[in-house]
Design a protein around this nucleic acid. Sequence first.
RNA 1: GCCAACUUAGCUCAGCUGGUAGAGCAGCUCAUUCGUAAUGAGCAGGCCAUCGGUUCAAGUCCGAUAGUUGGCUCCA
Length: 640
Amino acid sequence: MEQIKVTFPDGNSREYQKGISAAEIAKAISPRLLDDALAAKINGAVKELYTVLDSDASVKFLTFDDAEGKEVYWHSSSHLMAHAIQSLHPEARFGVGPAIDSGFYYDFDINKKLTEEDLAAIENKMLELAKADEMFKREELSKDAALNLFKSKEDPYKIEIISELDDTKEKISIYKEGEFTDLCTGPHLPSVGKIKFVKLLTVSGSYWRGDEKNKQLQRIYGITFPKKKMLDEHLAFLEEAKKRDHRKLGKQLDLFSVHEEAGAGLIYWHPKGARIRLEIEDYWRKAHLDNGYELLYSPHMGRSWLWETSGHLDFYKESMYSEMKVDDQDYFVKPMNCPFHIMIYKSKLHSYRDLPLRWAELGTVYRYEKSGVLHGLLRVRGFTQDDAHIFCTKDQIESEIIEVIRFARMVWSAFGFGELKYYLSTRPEKAVGENELWEKATVSLQNALRNEGLEYEVDEGGGAFYGPKIDIKIKDALNREWQMSTVQFDFNLPERFDMKYIGEDGKEHRPFMVHRALLGSLERFFGVLIEHYGGAFPLWLAPVQAAVIPVSQASLEYSKKIAEQLREHGLRIELDERNEKIGYKIRDWETNKVPYMLVIGEKEMQSGEVSVRQHKVGDTGKMSVESFAELLKQKVLNKD
RNA sequence: GCCAACUUAGCUCAGCUGGUAGAGCAGCUCAUUCGUAAUGAGCAGGCCAUCGGUUCAAGUCCGAUAGUUGGCUCCA
């Protein structure tokens, strides 16, 4: 019998009989591996465990610990859910059901409007079907055969998908699992029995293919796990995320509000929230001034000429608020700051010696967002961007981009976000600007990332029509990713506004323009920050840095002096004058997540010290007022 | 905008199949003067989101409007 050589990820290789399946190899290695394995990566492609090997190959067994293993697991779970829905509601027709980053969903068309209460029944059915432990059987078939199959099942969505496939290019395959057959590329688990723990999370409407012109289907999101512990941990994570919800904390800590009577999606910053914003802005301004930026202020509205010239009235109108008449002229509230910065640029003739210009503004813009997408601070209709525009020459773009990336990293680490992810988006099919410009700009973005030694993902064709870009995502304390920063070239606006500078050669040249936002918007950033810190802000941002708490009225006068003394050090201090027991007041400041509490009673009056209690830590002993002030000032300085 | 759920005191929530509203916290007053996560008593607080309908009777049922929440390609 012919032998083949199989190489494993650790570099070792072994000989097996030709025609052996991946599952048999796993079994030969250890029964435990066969048990844990969900699929196999054969020569770089994820395949079913029962895949047969006919020639030398590299094989990696995928378990639930691998991202690709999870994907197979959750994708198979979506089939299982569809199976359960079909057996409970035979009239159901199915859309698509992929695995997602955290679980899976399936879209389907059924007569009944499902509510969250119906999910339990589907969950139970899934567990029941999983017990039957049916295999996922793959079959390949021609386009006609596939069409006939789904015509017989009267499933218009699958028919639509198949009719767009080309079976001369790719095989059309279906998977059967017990009674349930689905169009699918796979790969899948060997059998549904691997799916042990199920939690269906939400049911919602979703348009067929995400297009609101199409029929709205129902979507169920769910997640599954092989071990109970994993499910429990996931549910605990969801619970923790709920606790940190910025909308909840915003109310609880009196940071901000939104008022339906006064308009949805518009944020009111309360004194404590505004205090935090002020600290953010102060840091932001100083950082920009220290890093070669100039700061600008620009109007909140502009005449239609501006928006016609910029092109916003052509390609951005649906996100802009309607015009208002001023002296019979149409004015628009700004959705972006860029045209204003360009007007400032154009207010005089520029020499190449002026460049680069780095102009930043905390610019408040208003954009129409559909009512259904508004979400606390994260998706709003009015917000302040930490916007900047860089105007430079061709020779400067690379160093400018390097500088922006370096600056972004510095700002993010100041706010406690060390782990960033970078995404480079290149030229889409429809684009303005010459190829050479795109090439040059894209290379400069690439070089900037490489220069900093950063890993990045490339989204081919994912750039805006006016230029390539780098997006930066941050990871918060719960490991969730947020897209925050963006650095975008713009080949459109300099052209439209006919921007120029006089070069060394005495001739007119077009400057390069880069849009750049780091925090994105202060509202959204604040929301992310609240969740990242769970409302317990670091000292330098905390609206109240320390509360001075007299044990009884007897030490009130002395406490007042201490509070005053600390305020003179520039610290944000509150004095708790309430006639309550010490335990009550401590509890109150603890729940308000104030970093420090100073307990002042008879003993402290005698010794002239303060008793320091730290949030979440507890009593940390006595020290002098001055050394406490110095400690705090040092921590503020270090953004500790 | 679309689908679903939701909207009751400042906040968090009860209020069963229709019979005109309840708790805790917060607030105010009084007593207490207290040593590291809730002292006690009392008072006050609501056009039950808004508008309309069904009914002898609506917080409760129906409809509309506004808002909130979860979603609306992470592509078989």
